[in-house]
Simulated assay, not measured.
Amino acid sequence: MTTRWLTPEEQRAWRAYIAATLLVEDAIDRQLQREAGMPHLYYSILANLSDAPERRMRMTDLAESLKITRSRLTYAVTRLEKDGLLGREDCRWDKRGSVAVLTDEGMAVLERLAPGHVETVRATLLDRLTPEQVGQLEEIFTQVAHGFQGDAGEAAPEELPWRRRSSPCSGSS
């Protein structure tokens, strides 16, 4: 198989993507650590649950929504549960699964953090783009994500983080 090396234009685009995503993620993490002592992933878990019906979501669905492995989610949920921001319940329709539940305290923390989080997202990314570029950004990354999820037939389902097999010691979700 012949390697399809990146063209100079593709290499510049790739490096720009890496630089921008690392800088934006760093700014968001620093803001959330400063204001709440939590990483962006924990905030994202709270935000996803706040949008879910009854602030509840099956753990496997939450892992898929966040695009992370089930074991990574289990670890994060355990920490948020210890802090009183989440609870966990048995899944009524699947005896093997569990449901993450956003507590009132978790919702209060999310409501307190949301203004600073949104301001950081705006300052580091969205305010630097025109409305047309924001639309292009959505279109580009939606296409990339759909490609991973099999819409373009590019990824086998077991390659997706939330479908990977966890080791027996990593906990169930």
Rank of each mutant, 00 (worst) to 15 (best):
G106F: 04
Q149A: 10
S98Q: 10
S172V: 10
M1H: 08
T130P: 11
E54F: 05
C169W: 04
G106R: 03
T142P: 01
E25W: 00
L62Y: 10
S50R: 13
V144Q: 12
G87W: 02
G106D: 06
E54W: 03
R72V: 04
Q136K: 11
M59D: 10
E105P: 00
L23S: 11
E132A: 13
W162V: 02
I28A: 03
D26Q: 12
L46Q: 09
R70D: 03
V101Y: 07
Q136Y: 06
E81D: 15
L80P: 03
A52L: 03
F141L: 13
Y75N: 11
V101K: 07
S71M: 04
D51Q: 09
E10H: 15
K82M: 07
S50H: 14
A114M: 07
G106K: 02
S65D: 07
D127H: 10
T124C: 07
L23N: 10
T120H: 08
P161I: 00
H40P: 00
I140S: 03
L137N: 01
R4C: 08
A100W: 06
C169K: 00
R128I: 10
L6Y: 13
R88V: 15
L110T: 10
R56L: 12
E138M: 10
R34H: 11
S167N: 09
Q149H: 14
A63L: 00
M38S: 05
K67Y: 14
L102V: 02
A27T: 09
E159Q: 14
G106T: 03
Y43E: 11
V118Y: 09
A100E: 07
Q143S: 12
P168H: 01
R96E: 06
P161V: 01
P115N: 06
A152S: 15
L6F: 12
A16P: 04
L102Y: 01
L102R: 01
L6D: 12
H40L: 09
L46D: 11
A36M: 12
Y42Q: 15
E139I: 00
L6K: 13
T3K: 05
L86M: 03
D83G: 04
T3Q: 09
N48Q: 11
R165Y: 01
L137M: 08
S166P: 10
E35Y: 03
S167A: 14
L41H: 12
W93M: 15
L62P: 13
A36R: 10
T7W: 03
R122E: 15
